[in-house]
Design a protein around this nucleic acid. Structure first.
Lengths: 329, 329
DNA sequence: CGGTGGTCAGACAACGCTGTCATGCCCGCA
DNA sequence: TGCGGGCATGACAGCGTTGTCTGACCACCG
């Protein structure tokens, strides 16, 4: 900028004015400056600019794994909201590790990002203290965090599971198994609990078949063959997330079992699997958008109390949930 | 930092030394400074620091759409490489628009990101001039760009398609159709050309059935019903990407046609579709990693000539490509 | 002709940090 | 006692901008 100023025989301030389209520059002066800028290939250094202004026009998204379709859809939505508002998005993966999450967030706070959307790795959110001290606005997503109340965007896990159970019961199922993820995850517990209470409220047989923990096709296979052969054999399965749905599909195919299945999370091509898989659809793009919007509201000075938004889920009925007891192939 | 210095009765420089673990500070002084830092909740402002140092420790990734699994896997891989090297990753979607891509890249250059990985929206890459002037290292991915030679990471489209054709021919197919994407895309043209030349080299009948352009299930449906009923009916289909594979699967299902299918791009659950879909697998994570590594090599001062790396593809054989002519349901 | 007000432009400091160099002190040694 | 050398620390400038304030110049008016 100093070079441009010297070359155009003006002060740096005038160059600044031209670059930022500020008023108070005679057209011919501005034109001269622009010509020099063009000739020298000058480009404003936004880092310096933003430092001067105390804002970075940058927000960050911290998730477990960007390659996971759920998070990548969230990421696309957040990036979109950011772009609309002239902000950049920094994305970071914590790989499910609280310590890495903390490190990542410290780095982001060190860069003075204007705000952060986080899918927290654990409920105690040790990183929260960092954010508290730095006053960086934050929105939690998908999972809540203990401690200071924060804006949080959740999915209606309870409603989603209830709709799945009700759907199956409406089609005559009474013995339903639930495969959930590791109960260390808040969402896994939520869905499990929803399953149990819904069963109770619908007056289904007690001692529900519930299997938690990280699941593999093999682990599903084992319990499945057990629960289908004993007394009161199950006729339907509900899976607690994407990966487990996949494991269950493989196990069902292997066992050639004609069970009904409702999966949590929609996935590409769910309609093409035979039978097409009925799913509880949560809308990651909508969640990401909502989270970003909430964050930007804070950035614009919204000082109202932290709020928790629960986003609705939707049951997408495909064949897998209704062909009760009939072989699918 | 000035506050900390005053409070600890030292100079800002000493605080700086403590914060950065520089030598030459007496342990008791350092301890005193650390205590004040803790008490005041001071945190180094990395923006200022990096500005002083002239680097941003930030790289950027510009793609079409972050929610697309291909790109999100690339993104995860690039982010990983960046994190390992203490860099942050800014991701941006250009949504396939050259003008938006240009705007995005200008913003990134304005922020002085250290380097950029781009999946270019078009071959003329108007944004290239910007990068040229700013000397920002860049690596192009998936598609090459005309003009100044640049580091470019491509996938072996030709080899991938050839393996698909050879696989089908080995199983007795002689009349194969190819559905490609809009020929405006370089990759689409590559794959189409590979299909045509491979057919020729294998001595298959001329006048290959090739259908390009954005495809919908309906558009595939139309040509498909035509090509299967005329003389020399086709017995197999090769699809040029993810979305077209999906369209073709829907069309095949609708028409209840027992054709063999080989799709380009692997996708989650390809194994679960009936019949399991044989695919040409390109490895987005490996491509992203390679691109990032190449970029960082440049950042570390590698001045060698720009190089183009072609990443191998792999044919994943599943049932869809081998059950020649036998109905699948 | 002096005063007033508007327009255009520049000087300067500051944003928060770090690289460079200078300073002061203490120690050991002749 | 004087001096060289190492160590701990500080002063200062500068990274590339922009906000604030000041000033030069001109036109207009009474």
């Amino acid at each position: 900028m100093a070079d441009v100023a010297a070359e155009a025989h003006v002060s740096v301030k005038t160059v600044s004015r031209v670059v930022n389209h500020e008023p108070g520059v005679r057209p011919d002066t501005a034109e001269r400056v622009r010509a020099v800028i063009e000739r020298l290939g000058f480009r404003r250094h936004d880092g310096a600019r933003l430092m001067r202004q105390g804002r970075t026009f940058t927000i960050a998204l911290v998730v477990e794994d960007l390659a996971n379709p759920f998070y990548s859809q969230v990421g696309a939505a957040v990036e979109r909201e950011a772009r609309i508002r002239q902000h950049q998005l920094i994305t970071a993966s914590a790989e499910g590790s609280p310590s890495r999450e903390r490190a990542v967030i410290e780095a982001l706070v060190g860069r003075r990002v204007d705000g952060i959307v986080v899918v927290p790795a654990d409920e105690s959110a040790s990183s929260d203290a960092v954010l508290e001290a730095s006053h960086t606005p934050i929105v939690y997503m998908d999972r809540p965090v203990r401690g200071t109340p924060r804006d949080t965007i959740l999915s209606d896990n309870h409603g989603g599971i209830r709709s799945a159970v009700e759907h199956l019961v409406a089609h005559g199922h009474r013995n339903i198994a639930f495969y959930g993820d590791d109960p260390a995850f808040w969402t896994a517990r939520q869905r499990r609990d929803a399953f149990v209470t819904t069963q109770q409220s619908l007056g289904l047989p007690a001692s529900p078949r519930v299997s938690m923990g990280p699941h593999t096709p093999v682990s599903v296979h084992e319990t499945l063959s057990q629960w289908t052969t004993g007394p009161e054999p199950i006729t339907a399965v509900i899976t607690g997330n994407n990966r487990i749905t996949l494991a269950a599909l493989l196990a069902l195919r292997e066992l050639r079992l004609p069970l009904s299945l409702v999966g949590y999370d929609d996935f590409e091509l769910a309609a093409l699997i035979d039978p097409p898989v009925t799913v509880v659809h949560q809308d990651p793009a909508a969640m990401g958008q909502k989270a970003a919007q909430q964050l930007f509201a804070r950035l614009l000075g919204d000082e109202s109390q932290a709020q928790t938004v629960v986003m609705p889920t939707r049951l997408i009925v495909r064949a897998s949930g209704i062909r009760r007891g009939t072989p699918t192939r």
